[in-house]
């Protein structure tokens, strides 16, 4: 089973890009499954269903989305194996700009859009900088020059990855992505595999449900800003 993690800031076009790439794979009659990780609510499962793609949704609710992801992903792979998918894709929004669901030895895609501004590649952490493939979306609505500048900024942030322009509406570039997905990593189980980066380690009183503000309420792993 080919397993690919797709991440990216909210509303960057992850679902549209996946749908367009899967449309390109249709003639090959591959069995595709998608795992959608989100925080509070999502309707993306309906979009997948409309294209006859099986999907499962995981909502992290009040938990750290990344911790939720990593505690579930190996079960997800087992689920994928049981259903004999040829391609399994996990889709998750990168919320704090640092974390990413990227796993060593699993093809990692980051989706980012042209409208985010040229400083965004700098602000996004390992999700972008350690991805194998960076997909840039919404290229049809900004100028060629801005696209070129943005691509260079991404190249600087991630010198090694493949940079691909995909249009989530027209599907331009989706066949290229589909080809890369088809050549993605073969995975049977994730037990024993490792994340590319460590997850956020807070474990403070607020992790345990504290809501009051003030020094005496801050317990555990607390880091302070330098203000003066």
């Amino acid at each position: 089973m080919k397993f690919i993690t797709v991440s990216g800031p909210p509303s960057s076009g992850k679902t549209s890009v996946i749908l367009k790439a899967m449309e390109e794979l249709k003639p090959k009659n591959l069995k595709v499954g998608v795992l959608k990780f989100d925080c509070l609510t999502t309707d993306d499962d309906k979009l997948y269903a409309a294209q006859n793609i099986d999907s499962r949704v995981g909502l992290s609710g009040s938990l750290c989305p990344d911790h939720f992801f990593v505690s579930n992903i190996d079960d997800c792979i087992d689920w994928g194996s049981r259903h004999a998918y040829d391609v399994l894709i996990s889709e998750s929004a990168g919320l704090c700009n640092r974390c990413s669901p990227h796993i060593k030895n699993c093809t990692a895609v980051c989706v980012i859009d042209n409208l985010m501004g040229i400083n965004t590649p700098k602000k996004i952490g390992p999700m972008l900088k350690m991805a194998d493939i960076v997909v840039i979306t919404k290229g049809d609505i900004v100028s060629q020059a801005e696209r070129e500048i943005f691509a260079l900024k991404i190249r600087q942030a991630n010198p090694e990855g493949i940079i691909l322009h995909v249009n989530g509406i027209t599907g331009q570039g989706a066949s290229q992505l589909a080809a890369l997905i088809e050549n993605g990593t073969q995975v049977e189980t994730l037990r024993g595999e490792e994340l590319r980066i460590s997850m956020p380690s807070a474990l403070c009183s607020y992790c345990l449900g504290e809501t009051q503000i003030g020094k005496e309420k801050q317990k555990g792993n607390v880091r302070k800003m330098k203000l003066d």
Partner: peptide
């Protein structure tokens, strides 16, 4: 990115 063959110009494009 330095060997990108095609540059595009269309009616829908804007400066942002």
């Amino acid at each position: 990115i330095e060997h990108k063959l095609v540059a595009q110009l269309s009616q829908n494009m804007n400066f942002v």
